[in-house]
Amino acid sequence: MTSSPPGDPPLSASRRATLAGCAALALWAFLAPLARLAQPLPPLLITALGFAAGGLLGLAVVAARGRLGALRQGGLAWAHGVGGLAGFHALYFAALALAPPVEANLLNYLWPLLIVLLSAPLRGLPLGRQRLAGVALGAAGAALLLGGGASFPVSALAGFACALGAALTWALYSVTAARFAAVPTEAVAGFCLASAALAGLGHWALEPPAELTARHWLAVLLLGAGPMGAAFFLWDLGMKRGDPRLLGTLGYATPVASTLLLAAVGEGRLSGRVLLATALVAGGGLLAALAGRREVAKL
């Protein structure tokens, strides 16, 4: 088959969408450090406030573009959006609160591996040997970070279970996003606000009241502007119109970056194990990227 001509619109759109997904991955590297900055706020309260900030910012952009009509979606689309966003973050923040943050954060980042693997049966996308090799390298890096001296106290089992639940929730939400390709990305603003309301009700019913300081408000605003705001819109574009296999494999770089940032704010320490894991993760992402370029060249 011949190569697509330069400037081919569908190919260009796919590349831009994949780059948008990569930008979301970069923003999510800051999710754990900002969540720790918001401690000791209860998990559901952090979820509610972060989504409220992100949803309101997104709503302002949607309104400015005259696209408020995009918020009118069917019940299944709302269930997918709210269930994925609210479910993942409630579980993730609970994991960070109940377990050692570095270990819980890294265990949650099994979701890139799950995305790559679930893309085959759920979306009919081939993996290929080179992409599987990239997945294996990334998995080895994640395993090295979780093992080799990492501490797993018995009291943290509930937190680790939440981290695993968060990983599965986000992988399923991401892979099934293509089935809602007709739902415009602007609708994510509504999903964020609905998630904020749902988490707020959960906080009111299940968690003790908390007093917010200036540090907490700063953390919430930063969460809403980045990893709990803009990142969702970018990820929605990437998963619906980009390459989920490549994004899932490149997602292995996010736990490395997040771990480095956690160490920088005093929540962990750097070691030779972390540096070796970084090399494995980067190598896996490179293999997947090269596989994607070869597939595109055959189109």
Rank of each mutant, 00 (worst) to 15 (best):
L168Q: 09
A20E: 07
P244N: 07
G200Q: 08
A189V: 01
R16Y: 11
P126V: 11
C162G: 10
R131G: 04
S155C: 07
G284T: 01
S151N: 11
G229Y: 01
R65Q: 15
P112Q: 04
T254W: 03
F180S: 05
T185Q: 13
G229K: 00
A63I: 03
R129W: 15
T213M: 13
A38V: 08
R65E: 15
T176F: 04
L201V: 15
E211G: 12
A289H: 13
L212Y: 03
A53L: 08
L98M: 15
A77E: 09
A20C: 11
G159R: 00
L71R: 04
F152S: 05
A199M: 13
I115Y: 02
F152W: 15
L19C: 08
T18F: 04
A64E: 14
G266F: 15
G292Q: 05
Q73H: 11
L144S: 07
A52Y: 05
L98G: 09
L96E: 07
A86R: 04
A297T: 13
Y173Q: 07
L107F: 06
A263I: 10
P227S: 06
R15N: 09
A97W: 06
A194C: 15
G134F: 05
R215G: 11
R269H: 13
P227E: 01
P208H: 06
L34V: 11
A150G: 04
L193G: 04
A189R: 04
L118D: 00
A143H: 00
A120T: 09
G159P: 01
T185D: 15
V188F: 05
A279S: 10
A133T: 12
L56D: 09
T169P: 04
A95D: 08
E211Y: 12
G55I: 01
